[in-house]
Simulated scan of single mutants.
Amino acid sequence: MKKIIGLFLLGTFFVSAQESSPFDHKKNEFRVDVLSAIAYGKLSFSYERFLGKDFSVGVNTNFSNSQKIEDDFNDGFRNNLPKYEINPYVRYALSKSKSRYYFAEIFASTNGGDFKEIIRDTDSNGNGFYTIKKSKYTDFGLGGSLGYKMYFKESWALEFLVGFGSNLTKREQSPNVISRVGINLGYRF
Rank of each mutant, 00 (worst) to 15 (best):
N184G: 03
Y84Q: 01
V162L: 15
G112H: 03
L94M: 11
G128R: 09
F77M: 11
N60D: 15
S56E: 11
K134M: 00
S95Y: 06
K3I: 03
N79Y: 14
T122A: 14
G112M: 02
A17Y: 15
K27G: 06
G11N: 15
I5L: 14
D54C: 02
F152H: 13
Y84C: 01
K96A: 11
I106T: 10
L7Q: 13
F55E: 06
G113D: 02
V59F: 10
G143R: 09
V32R: 06
K133N: 00
G141N: 06
N125Q: 12
E105N: 08
I119C: 03
E105V: 01
I38E: 08
T122Q: 13
Q173S: 02
R171E: 05
A157M: 13
I106C: 05
E172W: 10
I178H: 04
N74W: 07
K53I: 04
N80F: 01
L43W: 10
F140Y: 15
L185V: 15
L94P: 05
K136T: 04
S20I: 08
K42M: 08
E85F: 00
F14A: 07
G11T: 15
W156Q: 04
L161A: 04
I183H: 11
E29G: 07
Y92D: 05
D123L: 15
V177R: 09
S97Q: 12
F107N: 02
G113Y: 07
F23C: 00
D72A: 13
E29K: 12
K3P: 00
N125R: 13
N28T: 11
E48C: 02
W156F: 15
F8Y: 15
R100L: 03
F164P: 00
F189S: 09
V181C: 06
L35G: 00
F13Q: 02
L158C: 05
K68E: 12
R49H: 15
F189E: 07
F50A: 05
Q18K: 13
I69S: 05
L161C: 12
G182H: 07
K149N: 03
F189T: 09
R100V: 03
K149V: 03
K68L: 09
G41P: 04
A39N: 10
S155I: 07
G58I: 11
N127T: 06
Y187G: 09
F129N: 05
T169R: 15
T131Y: 14
R171F: 01
Q67A: 11
I118V: 12
G143T: 09
Y92S: 04
D114K: 01
F103R: 09
V32E: 05
S124L: 14
G126A: 13
R188W: 14
I4N: 08
L94V: 09
E29H: 07
E105H: 02
S135Y: 04
G165T: 03
L158H: 10
A108H: 06
I119Y: 14
I132Y: 00
Y47G: 03
S155A: 15
V90Y: 08
A104E: 11
F55C: 05
T138D: 00
F13G: 01
K134L: 00
A93E: 09
R100A: 10
K27A: 05
V90N: 09
G186R: 14
G144K: 07
I86W: 00
N65P: 01
K3R: 10
G11H: 13
K170M: 06
S46H: 04
Y92H: 13
S145W: 09
G128A: 08
S56P: 10
V90Q: 06
G141C: 07
D54R: 13
S124H: 10
D71H: 12
K98P: 03
S56W: 11
